[in-house]
Each structure stands twice: as C-alpha cells, then as structure tokens.
C-alpha cells in the first residue's frame, strides 16, 4: 500500500471537515477524490502531506507514519496545492531550481521525469511565475512537485477552472506519470474526470459516500435512468418534478435524467402526461448511468 488512511477525523471549531475517513491507495494507483468545494478534500490533502494534524485516526504515506515519520513523508511526496503556491517573483527556472535545491537534488538529476511537461514552459523560463498564464502556472507547479522524484504525488484540484482541452491534456500527462510508477492521489470537482481514475472515493460534507472503481460505482446505481427532452426544457423540469411518480429529475446536457419510484414503469404514461402539459417533440429513452447520477443519488 502506498497510502493507508484509518478513521481520520478533523474539525475546525464547530465545523466537521472530515468524519471517520478510511481508505487505501495501492502502489502505482491513480486514485481520485471526487467531490464539490467544501467536501473536505483539501483538509485531507493537508493532513496526508503532514501540514495539518488530524484530530483522530492514523495514516501512512509511502510506508511512513503520518506523525512519527513526518519528515520522511515530506521528502517522498510531491504536493500541488489547489491555490498556486509558487514564488510569483521568481522566474520559472528559479522556482524549479529552488524546489530542487530544497529537496537536495538538481534539475538535471530528475529532468527525465519532468521533461515532457517542462519543455512546454521552457521557452518562458526567464519569465516571472506571477506573469504566467493559468495553464503555464499549472505546468510549472506540477514540474516543481515532481522535481525530487516523489513516490506519491498529491494533486489538489489541478484542473479546477481549466478548460476542457487543457483538462484532457493534463489527464493524459497524469496517465504517463502513473506509468513511471508514481502513486497519484488527485481531487476534482469534475465528475467526468472520475472515469479516468483506477479507483475513486466520492466525498461530500466530510464523509466518503462510496469507494470503488468508476465502473463498479456506476453499476451500483439502484434505478433505471431515462433521457427525457421536449421543446421547452425549463417547463419540462418543472412538470417532471410535479409528476407523482418521479424519484429524481436532473438536467443533463440536452436531456433531463428522470427516474421513477416504481419498479415497473411505462414510458407511455409519462409521455401522455407531458403531452397533456402541452409539451411537443417529446423524447423518452433509457440511458446509461454516469458517476454524476450516482453521486447525486448518494448525496440526496
């Protein structure tokens, strides 16, 4: 095991940030913590990177105990916080050099590991970090988190606020790092990124809702989901919510995901109901469950 977390809890005054969290991450695994802002993801990252004490529970990272061996953990993990935390007044190259030196290594020694990422920002290596674009900052932060060849990499919401193209590229980068044997714990509020992880933990309000592979989590969904649409989407949402047998109604892109409370559900009945309400061009058809459906069902 690369990370073991056992019954970790943490409160800030009255606010419970984490409540009895337990999970394991295998060596070389790409493990995702999926949950919205305020779920407790950052608190967990800060605890596992030894920046914060847990109130209760124990954990090991790279085989070391969180409290007794915290110094060893620090030299074996890379951490990319959610908020850009490099030195804005240092240049790209100075930042990288600084982090290499702190960890007693050099850029040259581990250049192989960061090469693919760093070459993209190398043309700007004399530019101050504060003057970089969002995408470039992200690449520099990742380079700095990797420069000492960590065994475990912690990435706290690396793709928040990042456009879909850059997000896709970032995940391709993570997959290649994983192939180099690095264990990765990554958090994200984007449910579609969950499918790219080996295993995920769905987390909300400091509690883990479920842990499994993305495929298995989707399979556990208890209901059959239908795609519904008509010409007037807002009215459709209101009318579906008013339907007496509705279990859940959630907009999903061009369709609304609808589930019924009954086991045996006849779509013709719903179609008639919507027709009576004045909807036109009604489509009702079965659809695939997504991680987001599961998350919302569990978080309800």
């Amino acid at each position: 095991m690369s990370i073991t977390v056992s019954h970790i809890s943490k409160s800030y005054g009255k606010v419970t940030a984490l409540k009895d969290i337990s999970f394991d991450v295998k060596k070389g695994e790409l493990f995702g913590l999926i949950g919205p802002d305020g779920a407790g993801k950052t608190t967990l990252f800060r605890i596992l990177t030894t920046l914060l004490f847990a109130d209760e529970g124990t954990a090991t990272v790279a085989g070391y105990d969180l409290v007794n061996d915290y110094k060893k953990i620090r030299s074996h993990v890379g951490y990319m916080p959610g908020r850009f935390s490099l030195y804005q007044d240092l240049t790209v190259e100075e930042n990288l050099n600084f982090f290499a030196t702190i960890f007693g290594t050099t850029i040259e020694e581990n250049y192989d590991l960061i090469k693919e990422i760093y070459v993209q920002i190398e043309p700007f290596k004399t530019r101050r970090a504060g003057k970089l674009s969002g995408g470039m900052k992200q690449k520099l932060a990742l380079s700095c988190a990797l420069i000492h060849k960590p065994k475990v990499l912690f990435l706290d919401e690396p793709t928040t606020g990042v456009d879909p193209v850059s997000r896709k590229e970032f995940w391709e980068m993570l997959k290649r790092l994983q192939q180099k044997g690095i264990t990765i714990l990554v958090s994200t509020p984007y449910m579609d990124e969950a499918a790219l992880c080996d295993r995920i933990a769905l987390i909300q309000d400091g509690k883990i809702l479920e842990i499994d592979t993305p495929e298995a989590i989707v399979k556990h969904y208890p209901k059959k989901i239908y795609d519904v649409r008509s010409d007037h989407m807002y009215k459709l949402i209101l009318d579906l919510n008013a339907f007496q047998h509705k279990h859940s109604v959630y907009p999903f892109g061009e369709f609304v995901h609808y589930t019924d409370t009954r086991e045996a559900f006849n779509t013709a009945e719903l179609e008639n109901y919507l027709k009576e309400k004045g909807h036109q061009n009604i489509i009702i058809k079965p659809t695939k469950t997504t991680i987001e459906d599961t998350f919302m069902e569990l978080a309800k």
């Binding site: 919205p36 779920a39 928040t160 606020g161 807002y234 959630y250 907009p251 987001e292 978080a299």
Partner: peptide
C-alpha cells in the same frame, strides 16, 4: 463568469434552474 465552478452537482443544477427562471 463561471458561476458554478466547484459547486456540487445538485446545487449546480439548482443554479441552472434559477438561470432558466430568470431568462423566462
């Protein structure tokens, strides 16, 4: 400007219902 970044999926949908209502 990116009103729903990081918001949980249920609230994100409630937010869009507000948007629909406003446009309506």
């Amino acid at each position: 400007d990116e009103p729903t970044g990081g918001v949980d999926p249920i609230t994100r949908r409630q937010f869009w219902e507000l948007i629909y209502k406003t446009a309506d």
